[in-house]
Design a protein around this nucleic acid. Sequence first.
DNA 1: CTGCTGACTGGTA
DNA 2: GTACCAGCCAGCA
Length: 111
Amino acid sequence: MVILAGAFRSKVIAVVRRIPPGRVATYGDVAAAAGSSRASRAVGNIMRTCRSADVPCHRVIAAGGRLGGFGGNLQLKRELLRAEGILVTGSRVKEFTTRRWTRPAPRNKAT
DNA sequence: CTGCTGACTGGTA
DNA sequence: GTACCAGCCAGCA
């Protein structure tokens, strides 16, 4: 897989690919992990323009645990999420706050 | 380079 | 609860 595109885009894609199964991340989280905590819109834009099979865009949702847009394939997204053990009620992720993933557990050196 | 668009977010009404 | 507005950022014409 080759990502010959803007650095931000490749970064966003990398972050999304790092999202482990059974977990979800908001556009804002992905944007923040990519370097811009305010590029949430850009992230969504990247998802739409890129939507590569290597990018589990279905794990990327809007804030508040809402599924977001997804071009109207919310039903598909819902099933994909549910297939990973993520229950979705209407347009909202169940236990979203606990399923929310930002990045690999930051180890505490000085606990 | 300029302008518009959009799978977003938070606030106000 | 829904609806509308303003802000922010990257991609594309």
